[in-house]
Design a protein around this nucleic acid. Structure first.
Lengths: 154, 154
DNA sequence: TAAGATTGAATCGTCAATCTTA
DNA sequence: TAAGATTGACGATTCAATCTTA
């Protein structure tokens, strides 16, 4: 007997919450990515990387630290960093404390890009979420959604 | 002045709902796909296709009808159908009414696969959502999420 | 001319294997 | 031996172009 067989069947409300989660995510993410693309900006994942590196500043960040913050597997992050670095928005520097790793540092043009992305991203979030919910509903939604990832440390 | 600039900035509650939506989707979908893979079953998208075809039965379904139900672009669906057909779970038949199109019909082994997937999928949904929310919370969550895709007909 | 559907080329994601240093 | 990180090979997704019939 394997673990999956031990749980009971989901209720109708549970299944409805699941399907609505898929559809809401599809709709909201689709709108946000479309707004970024319409403004000739790179996808969301680039913003997430640049934001973390911008916060860290010149000290730089190790890939494994970024990996934990962004919930990406190591190889996916490695390929994403390749593309962002090739576009000139970050640099990989050798790490003095640990010869295995590198330090990722945002470039000047990376900081510029991030600042250029934020207003487009912000108004996309507003269009996809803010205009559809009251503030109270948004807060309540966030609390309910948080229960679905509460035990994923981070 | 482009359209995006006309909306106001999102509130903190809106941004929190957005980030929780991304994280909850990542966590829940990851668990469900992992459970399917652990049981040596194909990904969720195959289930969605087989379910629609199983419901339609021997009459078959046109790709463009499936496309609307599954929220997939035409080319993505075409490639997905290639893979499912290559695995023997559906057949493409010429369409008498419209020579441009085909009718998709589920095979016997496709029906068997769908029935085999459901209990694994169901207990995965229960694990990812049902065990984390009361029934009332799940119903409320579904209602709030539905507001995010309310105007996407379908 | 437009709708239904597919395809070539390029991009992106994933798995397993690898490399280097701790 | 294990951790940090990358890479080759392969599979999946995307875009634009194409093909066929309405």
């Amino acid at each position: 007997m394997y673990a999956g067989a031990m749980s009971t069947k989901p209720t109708d409300a549970t299944v409805r919450a699941w399907t609505c989660l898929l559809r809401a995510h599809h709709a909201a993410l689709g709108r946000v990515e479309a707004d970024l693309k319409a403004a000739d900006l790179p996808p969301l994942a680039w913003y997430d990387v640049l934001l973390e590196l911008d916060r860290t500043g010149t000290a730089g960040l190790r890939p494994f630290e970024l990996e934990r913050r962004l919930l990406l597997p190591q190889y996916a992050l490695s390929r994403l960093l390749d593309r962002i670095a090739a576009a000139g928005y970050l640099e990989r520097r050798p790490c003095a404390q640990d010869g295995r790793g590198h330090l990722l540092v945002i470039t000047r043009s990376g900081r510029t890009l991030r600042r250029r992305m934020w207003p487009v991203y912000a108004s996309a979030i507003e269009r996809a979420v803010g205009t559809r919910l009251t503030d109270g509903e948004a807060a309540h939604l966030a609390d309910l959604l948080a229960k679905l990832f509460a035990d994923d440390e981070g």
